[in-house]
Amino acid sequence: MLREFVALTRREYLKLARNPQAIFTSLLLPLLYLLLFGNGFTINAASFVNPEYGPFFTLQEALDFLFRGAPNYYSYFAGGMVGFVAVTASLFLGANVIFDKLFGIFKRTRGTPAPSAAVFGSRLIAGATQPILLSFFVLALALLFGHIPGLHGLDVTATVTPFGLVEVLLAIVLLSGLFATLFLTFGILLDVPQTYFAAVNLINLPVLLTSDALYPWGTMPTWLQNVSQYNPVSLAVNVLREVMFGSSAYPYSPGIYLLGLLGWTVGLVSIAIVLVRRALRPLE
């Protein structure tokens, strides 16, 4: 089991390393988002503050309401982008299976006695590295932009402890793992690129649009806020934002959101194991 897993994982990393265009384009997209979208779309929280009549009496109050404590929209948005990237970069995991099926490569693997856990696990572990690294890349880039004059950037306002960093790491790993599992399972269950991408879009847009990754929290209608608080992307992004901007606008500590995210991941992985084992059992 271990040797099969190691051999297949090595293959995934070799493929990844030999496709520099794919790595380059996957870096390009978040870069563009951070530069154009985040910089073009701004809301000035200070304009909502009026010490006498409201709606907000202090700037912190306005920031808590609009951006859940982030010092400006860009900083709020940068946290959301990390969640966004973790989801969209996971899409390749399933697409790679579909293309391996079209090229006959997957048939070879299935002709061997390699256990389905090794087939699934190798692709999950190797494949999830990309969204995880990309998430940190986005975070680093957003921080860097803050030091470039003329650009908006991510301003961290809370004191980040090592424990807080571990929480951020866990949030990114869990979120990437969750969507990597989801899309990989789609790739294994489906055979045709068209069906796969239709299924991915069916999931992707609703998940991202019902999360608080991109919308300013305070501008979301109440029903959307209610839906959003259970959305796994929101849960992960909450952890990031709470660690970076403080807890004043959050009812729960990051640990609670992480637990919620863990629940999602464990639930989905369990379903995936059942489905993938059935799909990959010998003699279909």
């Binding site: 089991m1 040797r3 099969e4 190691v6 051999a7 297949l8 090595r10 293959r11 070879r108 693997t109 061997t112 006695p113 390699a114 090794a118």
Partner: peptide, 12 residues
């Protein structure tokens, strides 16, 4: 060939 061999549990 090495990947295929690994899939049969053959050492690296």
């Amino acid at each position: 060939l090495e990947v295929a061999a690994g899939c049969y549990g053959i050492s690296a």
